[in-house]
């Protein structure tokens, strides 16, 4: 790897001269946008555990595909989407419980599936002898080796995923926050939940190919959780989540190029730093907000008395 000259323009130009780096950045960009957007809803729905499981399920998929001599891309997507359908079919995996503002999960079942998936992945890796360096890459990501074909597959999957998310967004938000009312209003809550799990599977499969199966959360959870701490507006939160994921990916990949340490470490560390900053900001803002007197309208019944009196 070439050294850093501290002339940013030159450094970037030098980096982009490598085709593998160009592909890594392309793949990273696609994945960051998808993970930031899907992750926002995942955090809102409290389905992080399901998301993590889907990411882990991608690992046996990729390992199995490598063992069989197929492109790992198909392994990732195939296993993640199938896993999403299985979780959606669980008695309450994709269905709201009585709670508000989030979803319950059949965490015991999902956790069991996750352990089994990891075990299968390890089996495939040992069946495919001489693959042990590949194991690291599958679990923790690598900056080299994203092929043109892989970028194209990621692009197609990403565009389909975002289009579906755009079509679902409003009823998805409604049924994530208040499933009982959404159902009464005619939103097919179970169908929306299942469709979202599939999107989550696609996002996890795509992200795995950049960060590795175990570090998917650097892009799927951290930017969304960071955004949620910065704003309570849905549209702004979603946009922030995407922007943070993009920034973390670009900067992380650039540092990884100029340093001896792996990409997964840098992307995760940056995401973690952003999360810490946002958490600190939130705590400070809440404290200041609490010290200031509330707005002019008191939260008591002033408004109601007025309207009733006028009637």
């Amino acid at each position: 790897m070439t050294g850093l000259s501290w002339n940013l323009v030159d450094d970037v130009r030098q980096m982009l001269a490598f085709h593998f780096m160009l592909n890594a950045l392309r793949a990273g960009t696609i994945v960051a946008v998808v993970a930031g957007a899907v992750g926002y809803f995942m955090v809102l729905r409290r389905q992080a555990f399901a998301g993590h499981t889907l990411a882990v399920i991608g690992f046996p998929g990729a390992a199995g595909a490598t063992w069989l001599g197929i492109s790992p891309v198909f392994g990732y997507f195939g296993f993640c989407i199938a896993g999403a359908l299985v979780i959606a079919a669980l008695p309450s995996g994709g269905r709201p419980n009585a709670g508000l503002g989030g979803y319950g999960e059949e965490s015991a079942v999902i956790g069991t599936v996750q352990a089994f998936a990891l075990a299968c992945g390890f089996l495939f890796v040992s069946l495919y002898k001489g693959f042990l360096s590949g194991l690291n890459n599958l679990l923790f990501g690598t900056i080299i080796g994203v092929s043109d074909n892989q970028v194209l597959t990621l692009l197609i999957a990403g565009v389909i995923c975002l289009a579906m998310l755009a079509a679902l967004a409003r009823p998805l938000l409604f049924s994530s926050i208040d499933p009982a009312v959404a159902r009464a209003r005619g939103v097919p809550v179970r169908l929306v939940a299942a469709a979202f799990l599939v999107l989550l599977g696609v996002a996890a499969a795509g992200t795995s190919q950049v960060t590795g199966s175990l570090l998917v959360f650097a892009l799927l959870v951290a930017p969304a959780a960071t955004a949620a701490r910065l704003t309570a507006r849905p549209a702004l939160g979603l946009s922030l989540s995407v922007l943070i994921a993009l920034a973390v990916t670009w900067v992380g990949e650039t540092i990884a190029f100029f340093s001896p340490y792996p990409i997964g470490f840098w992307v995760s560390s940056l995401a973690f730093a952003a999360f810490l900053l946002a958490t600190t900001y939130r705590a400070a803002a809440d404290r200041i907000g609490r010290r200031q007197p509330r707005g002019s309208t008191s939260p008591t019944d002033a408004g109601i008395t007025a309207t009733v009196g006028a009637a």
């Binding site: 809102l44 508000l100 409003r170 409604f174 926050i177 208040d178 959404a182 701490r229 507006r233 849905p234």
Partner: peptide, 19 residues
């Protein structure tokens, strides 16, 4: 739950529409 009250009220208006 980090969603504002206005957003929740707004969902009552058109939250069931696709898109």
């Amino acid at each position: 739950t980090r969603i504002r009250g206005v957003d929740i009220v707004r969902l009552g208006l058109d939250g069931d529409r696709w898109g």
